[in-house]
């Protein structure tokens, strides 16, 4: 089973921090209208979320693993809810590589696999080095073609 690049934790924490900061700002503004003596609660809320997000990122990284098996991509992830996903190559519609600004900053990329399914229609594998992501994309593409272009919906 392949694991993610450890730097992905940083990407996740940055993501949480951005949303936590926004939330903190809005909370602070809202609190100002009610009780100015409680102003500390906004930043405290944000800080709390960042701490929880950090812990979550650590565990998330520990749980995350994936494997290209004979006939399917197999993914294990999830901290509170453990999820194991099987995406058969036959079902892959297309494969993307994506890089967010944070990911570019730390030199990571992610691969997104799309299926025609209704619920988990896109499955993404984050925390890959750009080379790995590209190789993965190429490999998935080949597997999808090899496993017969059968049965479009």
């Amino acid at each position: 089973m392949e694991r993610l690049d450890p730097r992905v934790r940083f990407v996740w924490v940055v993501g949480t921090t951005v949303s936590a900061t926004l939330l903190g700002v809005f909370a602070t503004i809202a609190i100002r209208f009610f009780d100015a003596s409680l102003l500390w609660a906004g930043p405290a809320l944000a800080a709390g979320i960042v701490v929880i997000g950090g812990i979550h990122a650590i565990y998330r990284y520990r749980r995350w693993r994936f494997e290209l098996q004979d006939d399917a991509v197999y993914i294990e992830r999830g901290v509170l809810t453990h999820v194991r996903t099987v995406v058969p190559y036959v079902r892959v519609q297309h494969v993307d590589t994506q890089r967010s600004p944070t990911e570019r900053a730390v030199g990571l990329a992610k691969v997104v696999v799309y299926t025609a399914g209704s619920r988990q229609a896109d499955v993404s594998i984050p925390g890959l080095t750009p080379d790995r992501a590209e190789a993965l994309q190429e490999r998935l593409r080949r597997m999808a073609i090899e496993s017969e272009p059968d049965d479009a919906v």
Binding site: L80, T81, T85, T115, S118
Partner: peptide
């Protein structure tokens, strides 16, 4: 079976 797109197995804390 031949209509299956993906298979997912989810276990929440309480289920585990």
């Amino acid at each position: 079976y031949f209509r299956v797109q993906t298979v997912a197995d989810a276990r929440t804390v309480f289920q585990r």
